[in-house]
Design a protein around this nucleic acid. Sequence first.
DNA 1: TCGTTTCACTTTTTT
DNA 2: AGTGAAACGA
Length: 791
Amino acid sequence: MEAAETMTQSRADCLLDGLTDPQRDAVTHAEGPLLVLAGPGSGKTRVITRRIAHLIVGGTPPWTILALTFTNKAAGEMRQRVADLLGDESAVARGLTVSTFHALCARLLRRWAEGIPGAGLTGDYTIYDTSDQVSLMKRVIAELGLNTGNWPPRSVLSAIGNAKNELLDPEAYGQQAHDFYGRQIAKLYGAYERALRSANAVDFDDLLVLTARLLRDNEEVREQLRHRWEHVLIDEYQDTNHAQLVIARLIAGERRQMPGMPGEFIEPNICVVGDPDQSIYGWRGADLSNILEFEEHYPSARVIALGENFRSTSPILAVADGLIRRNLRRKHKELFTSRTGGEPVEVALALDERHEASQVAQWLGARHEAGTPWREMAVFYRTNALSRVMEDELRARTIPYSIARGTAFFDREEVRSAVAYLRVLANPSDDVSLARIINTPARAIGKTTLARVQEAAQTAHVPVLRAMREGLAADAVGTRAAPALRRFVDLMDSLTGAGTFMGESITGSLADLVERVIRETGLEAMYAAQAQATGGETDAERLENLSELVSSAAEFEERFDPEADPSLSDPKSLARRQAVGAPPLLVMLRAYLESIALVADADAIDPAQGAVTLMTLHASKGLEFSAVALIGLEEGLLPHSRSQESPAALEEERRLCFVGITRAMDHLRLSCARYRTHRGFSERSTPSRFLDELDEPSIVRVDLADSDEFIGDEGTDLDRAPNAPGATSPARGAARLFPPGCAVRHEQFGVGRVIAVMAGTTPRARVDFRDVGVKTLVLEFARLRRIDPSA
DNA sequence: TCGTTTCACTTTTTT
DNA sequence: AGTGAAACGA
């Protein structure tokens, strides 16, 4: 007994090793609400993981702890670090729930969908992503007799999303709508919700909204979960929205009187960690007041500020501080580091985006020469579109890189199609997925046929697949279509192995199912035929992606642990599940589809790869790298043009820049380009105002546009155009480079002779090509090259 | 019904 | 530029 205690004691002490006083306070804080205001690099993750470990070592059962993060990757890392701290395997941490908000909600809903009064949802629901939402909304708009021109699906969805984040249902939204627009949106909102429910589907926002409703309206579930999770910890609290706040509060519980002890209270054990200066998801409903008003929500809260930065050198921190100070709606927080010295931050002006990319690549190369491994370097940008140039450049120089785009794979059309089949198998009511695959590959079921079946299904209030199976549209569809529909139903039924649906008892391999879907639906044959016909690389690639999907399913299957499901969370039900043995295929399929739906870009980062990481500023949150290059610091990009009208949005852009800067440990480089090609058009850009807000003594400005490689002013810049593909070339001088009659070569059209050059904002040339005849080309993009001897 | 072609637009960020 | 949808022709 005594020995055990000593051991526990010493392990607890270990957990406090190397912590500063405030860090230690946060780790050891016992009961009641706790707010940790953690500046960048202040050891936030360290504090959370040690706090969890400390609780467990102190006797708190792991299954009474719930930790919430924003990405799966963050959750995985947190779980791993806790396990590492606890040493003896993960056994100690068994039952500990570390999850994203969305994944937690998805699982709670799996378990209790039927327990939400009036929601009409069942546990086999599908999660719709943005493009599914758009498809559904288009249909809803059409059904209400509106047109997508006046009611752009995305805008409507965004209005609905905002309403959902505030937990307003269609009725409540309609009540507070006072103009025509608002009332129409309310109508669309209601119809959209009905359409979702009849497809037994939820969108991302619903995961939160419905969970909030479940907890609010179902006392039994609420009490059960409250009882189960005695400790709730939330990371990145500054990025939670209203629905998430409500969920957290409902699970954590309220301050309440201790039974039989008047004057004594039980405080909820809710610990939130965040930094208002790193709030970057306001556009998606994140509410900064959640963290700012934490003390009002929990008057007894203890507040601990972690200001010391252990990550960045002092010039980097000074630059970050100088920038963030410009935000007016902000409580100032002193940032300090003991990492004095260090290189100044490089601020560079490049000629154009290619030039910028090349300079960045060179800079990364120099860092590598100096001993920094590729994997400790990163390039950040405001928009995904900016990754392209950077990729091209790194590829050309054979610098290893990887892009953080978690969804990229599952966004490919062939993968989406295969997944749509799986979704229909898992949820036969999923009409959006059904519409996607009913004629892929082509089965002579065209637009009109589909519309007729959909209509028949609608009037009969049944899912489309069922309407087809029961031949409800038999007289409405043509004689050719009817057997085609029949064959499709038979195909789907043959995949489930039954006339009805995969019974719960069916077991088997998920990977096998995926493979059968790809083969038996004809997807594989379709791409194989195309690959053969065109010899096209893309089709061969598609086949590869499909087989990669099979691998991903196999991998998932391997890792799948039905016990890790927090919805079932009490030890009793764990035992019950274990007794069941192998998980039914359907359960696994649902879990697989769910994991696909909830991947984040940041999840795709694998530091083991030994490559430079390219990602958006948003995805960079929570990470750190030895060397960071931030590109595209231009007005309109960072801050983004869409944010310039509101001061609040502008401040969020500044915070975004702050987040990027503070990811850097040792080396930081910020750059902008004088010209940038937008959507096909090269435009002069203005350096970001943020570049004027940096701490001058900590930076060194390099005007690379003036360096020897690119001589100075625009005149000479223009002269590069004919020989430097992609170099931007504004109007002036263009005509002079391509005198009428000169011979030119075009990548695609071959050789030809210039007829005339038209000046203007976008100078064009009329060229008579030997093979393809006369074409008019925009000089900026045509990449024309003179090939006559005089050139 | 299906394939091609033209045309029109463009959310930046993501669970 | 690139994509996705409407329009058109077979």
